[in-house]
Design a protein around this nucleic acid. Structure first.
Lengths: 265, 265
DNA sequence: CGGAGAATTGACGCGAGTCAAGTAACGTGG
DNA sequence: CCACGTTACTTGACTCGCGTCAATTCTCCG
């Protein structure tokens, strides 16, 4: 009885069988939603907590001129703020980006979970700190990274997060985000995202298309992005492909700080 | 016995005298630090929770090429994540920007506070949700706002946050941030921040310099920024100057979406 | 097979960065 | 209280990354 919820929290603490059972039991009320369904709208009074079990969603805001900024991608195992209910009105929207399975956790059940299991409580805290870390990393990307660095960094992040919930391996994972969606997340235009993805593809660093991401040269990718996974606070930071990549990155730090090195053809 | 800590939390819940007393008592261990003192460094094991009582600090990250991105400004009443201790290493730095008074709260005291007073617990949750909202608003600014919109939006935010802890009134407050610091927060260069501040000054919208911010035409300022204070979740959203400004903004929404309107003589 | 959304590409413009040279404000010590 | 060094602020000229506009070409699916 495992699901994306416990898959994620397991990475943040030593859950025992009882913890896992309770987490699975908490996800009774599951809905399947099509892409484009709003889970939360700006101005709404906050609903109960929900967890993504399958599929992708995002938080976003609309600006007066009609442009959209995505602030968070939510993937399986991600959930909305636990204490959201104390607020009077939501200040942003959450919409599904693909067909999505969502579990709704009544406030009472949430409360019981937290009071009964300190391990789970700690895992919630941890998850919340990771989410904040991701948000901070986005600020850094938008503020100080070029388009190619931004795209690379986001792909590194999403790959690692997918891997941490068991949805990626061998430098490959599903990535059903359109270039328009990526543009709204990266603060770029779709046209420029396209050009940037093309550049990374031609350099043999990664491939992105038809719903899949493939990282072809992790070390080079991490170097371009200036990617350091520390903000994801992986408790079990084993020597996966990307850890190796980061070690290599250190070794090649002497090279030019930006720009691509030619593909090793 | 009031301080910036209770001043802030009071805005998020109905604290009674006992709550206020406990909060004040929790701030026994106070240090005064000069500008440039690091409260936290990347890689550190997290320390106890701290609260800013006077002065300013910021969270930031350094990039491989040496550039800096500030992710949060911390003003009196702001504190670091309450559950930070569950993490193994900090993923960013926190440094004071001015002479600063900081109170350190031992973990046990924190724990006692939360367990004894549900009102305070709720206020903590609320404060954390506001901090996250601010972070999301920054992502929006960096992603989709021009320089003049970004500067205006940040100044609106900082003014309101200062007012909410009783440190601003009559559209004026202390603002000891240099243009270099602002540039690192806004994802711009100091040169461009200077040009942008000049433009706003010449338009008679605001003045910023010598350590002070003055908002001369709040309605126009809010219009340029596309500022909506909802993400700050002010519980006591009385009709202050800025609420009025926002009402006016709605009334003038028909005008050109961007750009300045001429100063009214 | 056909329509809609997504991806792609080229030409051109502009907002913000870069470089460089000042001027003003501030803090410190004599 | 002034001299002086340091830091912050300004300004102009030029460059460039990314946006804009517009036209195709894919891809997916019903």
């Amino acid at each position: 009885m495992t699901n994306a919820f416990s898959d994620r929290l397991r990475g943040y603490g030593r859950l025992n069988d009882e913890d896992e059972r309770l987490l699975a039991a908490a996800c009774q009320n599951v809905r399947t939603l099509r892409a484009g369904h709003h889970l939360i709208r700006e101005g709404d009074r906050p609903d109960p907590v929900f967890v993504i079990l399958e599929g992708w969603a995002c938080r976003y805001k609309l600006l007066p001129d009609g442009s959209r900024q995505i602030m968070t991608f939510m993937m399986p195992g991600d959930f909305c703020d636990i204490h959201i209910a104390v607020l009077e009105a939501m200040d942003h929207n959450i919409v599904t980006l693909t067909r999505t399975k969502v579990a709704t956790l009544p406030r009472a059940k949430m409360q019981a979970l937290v009071e009964a299991r300190p391990t789970i409580t700690r895992a919630f805290w941890w998850a919340q700190l990771v989410d904040t870390g991701v948000l901070r990393a986005w600020v850094v990307s938008m503020g100080r990274r070029t388009a190619i660095e931004r795209v690379s960094h986001l792909m590194c992040e999403l790959y690692i997060r997918m891997r941490d919930v068991g949805l990626a391996s061998h430098n490959r994972c599903e990535m059903p985000l359109t270039q328009l969606v990526l543009a709204d997340a990266l603060g770029l235009t779709p046209v420029h995202v396209n050009r940037t993805v093309k550049e990374l593809r031609q350099a043999g660093v990664m491939d992105l298309g038809r719903g899949w991401l493939t990282i072809l040269r992790p070390a080079e990718m991490a170097r371009i992005a200036g990617f350091d996974a520390n903000y994801l606070h992986q408790r079990l930071a084993g020597p996966g492909k990307f850890a190796v990549a980061l070690a290599e990155r250190t070794a090649t730090a002497g090279r030019a700080a930006r720009g691509l090195t030619p593909a090793p053809q």
